[in-house]
């Protein structure tokens, strides 16, 4: 599952592998960090809670800006363009990128489910008070986080494995 944003000019944006690695890593790290900061900040009203919310929101905005930098890139095109618009090389790359993303995504979901089951059990027994998502805000954050990871993981793999195209003959 991914997407590709084609600009009005129809041209695909060229991003260097280094920039793309930075952008995808930022997106994958900043969103969960921001969401956790907001969730784990103290109850509303205190200055610490306000600063926690502001810092968390800032990290989420940084993650979204990072996504915007590669939404129209060549690598994102390989990950998210309509299948009939890609050639055989690009389709082979997409297959490998999605294979990697599937493995990572499944592992993360399994870790999440194991954590939730342990946290629910521990909370029910009263031995500890571990965080579990409660209410619309928490589940909304989880939903957008999962969507972001589904979109970004294939592009992240491409940013680390696809070499820069040979120079010359720019279209």
């Amino acid at each position: 599952m991914s997407f590709f944003y084609r600009g009005r000019s129809g041209r695909v944006a060229e991003r260097s592998p280094a920039m793309l690695r930075l952008a995808t890593t930022t997106a994958l790290a900043a969103y969960p960090a921001g969401a956790l900061l907001m969730v784990l900040s103290p109850e509303s009203g205190s200055p610490a809670a306000v600063w926690g919310d502001i810092a968390g929101l800032a990290l989420i905005v940084i993650a979204l800006l990072a996504v915007a930098t590669f939404a129209a890139s060549r690598q994102q095109r390989i990950a998210g363009e309509e299948q009939n618009k890609l050639d055989e090389f690009e389709l082979a790359l997409r297959l490998r990128a999605r294979g990697f993303a599937y493995n990572v995504f499944t592992a993360l979901v399994l870790i999440g489910v194991v954590y939730l089951s342990i946290a629910s059990d521990v909370n029910a027994s009263g031995r500890a008070d571990l965080w579990v998502p409660q209410g619309y805000d928490h589940w909304n954050g989880v939903f957008w986080g999962i969507l972001l990871y589904a979109f970004v993981l294939p592009t992240a793999w491409l940013s680390w494995t696809l070499p820069a195209p040979p120079p010359g003959d720019e279209a």
């Binding site: 050639d87 090389f89 040979p166 010359g168």
Partner: peptide
């Protein structure tokens, strides 16, 4: 031959 021009570059390399 109906491919992206960068694919030719990757092929040549």
């Amino acid at each position: 031959v109906g491919v992206n021009y960068q694919t030719i570059g990757y092929l040549e390399r």
